[in-house]
Design a protein around this nucleic acid. Structure first.
Lengths: 221, 221
DNA sequence: ACCTGAACACCGTTCAAGT
DNA sequence: ACCTGAACACCGTTCAAGT
């Protein structure tokens, strides 16, 4: 009673493989089921093929993830309105957003000097803003590196908190309880400043302002 | 002619398993053969047992890596001489050092709010220095978070460059060539500032000074 | 030329069964 | 009570063999 598997040829035409479709499928899997689900085999299955077929378009898993990061960064709006500071904040927030909404991608950014098309577009735009702010070449150059590092780290942190199993609030509450139970003799500052450590507020915006103000006050070289 | 395997009981006494010896063995493997070699099975083999035995002392691989990070941070000297700035730099450099010399550990720090004994000791000491600098509680609290994030990111980056296959210089040279080949119309700032982007200098010290100066000029809240 | 089945050499983790 | 052999359910990557 069982029918033999329908030959590939007889089935409806399958979307042809390409680097692009593989990358987008990877991003979909990441968003739907997280970093652990992002395996070559899973991507292949989603595309109705075997894992070996992916290697025609992608060197390996790291290469795929780098391409996924680039794709995600391609969705960052490169221009914004407002003051100079507003524009830096907008570009920075969009970059963090783009990285942190896909679990594990920020870590890729932390692991290599940016060389992909869309990462370089973000960097180029940030560099233009920094030069507009009156920085000399060296300071602007070092600053863009520092800011990009910070954005990737902020995205990695955010991504870890929002994705890892439970809710962000649970993670914070657990840390708060841990801090509350510390020995004040061993950890005098943490115990006495615990309130401040968990105080609410826009830390991302503050952190970026720290960087901007610091860069303005600290010539490189 | 072959002898049967000597029974466990007959062999020289094996060092007893413990969380501590597992953690230190993990660190050894990381240093000797890198992150990919750090598997539960490899740790077990090094300790002359099976992977299942590790789970008595360690919840899983993530737990092991977190414990390894804590062990590494335990080697950070918490006090230093010099000016206020010198002391911050010394603590920061030692922290980056501790993380970056073991491939992949910095990433662990980026993925969770610090709650381990030795991470908290570093934080407590940094908090004391920040308060000494005259910061209010909230600013000091937010600042220690920001600095720790930056140190972990700096360590992750450094670790990636120094460990990943070839030499650091090769990675930079490759990036430089890539930047040199970019279309100036699409990447006007990167191409015109390429010299500055790859200019030598102590970027770590500069980056930390940016943070310190920025924090001093940017009250939180 | 392009694609892929099958295999290789591994993983982390669990648990029933041993001592 | 403590430990672990063996198994489960996977991995990334390669390559010979197919069309």
């Amino acid at each position: 009673m069982s029918t033999p598997p329908i030959s590939r040829r007889a089935r409806p035409a399958k979307a042809p493989l390409s680097r692009d479709v593989i990358v987008r499928t990877g991003l979909d899997i990441l968003d739907r089921d997280g970093l652990d689900a992002l395996t070559m085999r899973r991507v292949a299955k989603e595309l109705d093929t075997g894992p070996a077929s992916l290697y025609v378009y992608v060197a390996n898993r790291d290469d795929l993830m780098a391409a996924m990061l680039d794709e995600a960064l391609g969705r960052v709006p490169l221009t914004a309105d407002g003051t100079w500071r507003d524009q830096i904040h907008a570009l920075a927030n969009a970059t963090v957003e783009a990285m942190s909404r896909h679990e594990g991608l920020a870590t890729v950014a932390l692991g290599a000097i940016p060389t992909s098309d869309n990462a370089l577009l973000v960097l180029d735009r940030m560099l233009a803003l920094l030069k507009e702010g009156g920085l000399d070449d060296t300071t602007a150059a070092w600053a863009v590196d520092l800011i990009y590092l910070h954005l990737a780290a902020a995205a990695a942190e955010e991504s870890a908190y929002t994705t890892k199993g439970g809710e962000e609030d649970d993670t914070i509450a657990a840390a708060d309880r841990r801090y509350a139970s510390l020995d004040p003799r061993r950890y005098p500052m943490i115990t006495s400043l615990r309130q401040a450590l968990f105080s609410p507020g826009d830390r991302d915006a503050w952190g970026l302002n720290v960087l901007i103000n610091g860069i303005l006050h600290t010539p490189a070289g």
